[in-house]
Simulated scan of single mutants.
Amino acid sequence: MIVVTGATGNVGRPLTRALTEAGQQVTAVSRHTAAVPDGVRHLTADLARPAELKPALAGAAALFLLLSGNLHAAGHRPADLIAEAAAAGVRRVVLLSSQGVATRPFGPTRIALRELEDTLRASGLEWAVLRPGGFASNALWWAESVRAQGLVAAPFGDVGVPIVDPADIAAVAAACLLEDRHAGGVYELTGPEVITPRQQAAAIADALGTPVRFHELTRAEARAAMSRVMPAELADDTLDILGAPNPAELRVGPDVERVLGRAPRPFSAWAARNVAAFRADRV
């Protein structure tokens, strides 16, 4: 049995589906009650209280560990989640980390994630670490303004990075959970091309078949909005990358293709697949 945390999110949903289609028993864990595929057990747990994960881990062979934004704030102890997994007899943990652990090692949230990676390596468990860059699904932040106003508002409109489709992250995670050959692997996950927020807005417009305007936010405006849904230090670390990516953050990595045997999906494919979220007539 495989436990998937963050199971109702943009990575967890396709991962749960992929594991189920591979014939695995899956326990989906989220903070709130949610619909899951047929045959999947769903449990609620707040990972900020690691003991709440115990019922899900009983009898589990593997764990996909995804930390919600609040767990990146000071005062939380995500390493306790790994201790709970080890105590429950879990054999393998696949951790969703961040590209910034390598490219921005001194950012406050990156230091915490590196410490978590180090805890996992020292745990005695089998492990793999996924380090994605920016997620294509972050464009869902714009869905409401696109529906209401035909508008994307974002900072750094002409600065791009090779954002990755969460479905590709999920596919790599499934491979790491199921295949022994990925034990001890650290995978940097990117999309196939550098793409700017302005270009993302154009791709959404193409998927919709209607114009979408772009408005550039200041860094301060973007930080204020992001800080309402994530710790301020995580917002700052993210904006540092989006505003001035370094050469490592601009690099299109080979690891999605190396693991999956195919190129990563472009943002345009993500936009076409998720176009309903941006339609003004969405029910």
Rank of each mutant, 00 (worst) to 15 (best):
E179L: 05
R265G: 00
G191R: 03
L47S: 04
I195H: 09
E233Y: 02
A51V: 09
T218N: 02
R77G: 01
V29P: 11
N274Y: 09
P166H: 02
G134M: 15
A62H: 02
P266K: 04
R147P: 03
G261Q: 02
A280W: 06
I195S: 08
L53M: 10
L125A: 00
P155M: 07
R91C: 09
R49N: 11
T5E: 01
T103A: 12
A122W: 00
T27G: 11
V152H: 08
L95T: 02
L53W: 07
H215Y: 15
E249H: 00
E52C: 05
A271L: 03
L178D: 04
A61G: 15
A201M: 10
A167Y: 01
N246R: 10
V152D: 08
P231T: 03
L242M: 14
R121G: 06
G39C: 03
I163R: 13
D236V: 05
T5G: 03
E216I: 07
A62K: 06
D118L: 13
D168G: 10
A60T: 07
P264N: 04
P231F: 06
V159E: 09
A112P: 11
D158S: 04
A202M: 06
P14K: 08
A175T: 02
P155F: 12
V146M: 09
D118I: 00
G23M: 03
T20H: 11
G23R: 01
L53Q: 11
A51H: 09
R17Q: 13
E257A: 15
A263S: 14
L19H: 06
V172I: 06
P37G: 01
G253C: 12
V29T: 07
R110Y: 14
V172H: 03
Q25C: 12
D180L: 00
N10W: 08
T16R: 04
G253V: 10
L96G: 04
R213F: 05
V11F: 10
G261W: 04
P197I: 02
A83G: 14
I163Y: 12
P14N: 07
G39T: 01
V146A: 07
S137A: 15
P266A: 07
L260T: 04
A143Q: 10
E126A: 08
A277I: 00
R110A: 14
W141D: 15
V229S: 13
Q200W: 13
I195V: 15
A87Q: 09
R110K: 11
R131G: 06
V36W: 10
F106N: 15
A34H: 09
A48L: 05
L234Q: 07
L53T: 08
E233L: 04
V26D: 08
L71C: 03
G89N: 09
D38E: 13
P192N: 08
T238R: 14
V3D: 01
T218P: 02
V186R: 10
G89M: 09
G150D: 07
V40M: 05
A102G: 11
R110V: 12
E115V: 12
L113S: 12
A205M: 07
S123C: 02
I204P: 11
P162Y: 10
F106Q: 15
F64S: 01
A153F: 06
R251Q: 10
G124C: 01
R265V: 01
A143P: 13
A85W: 00
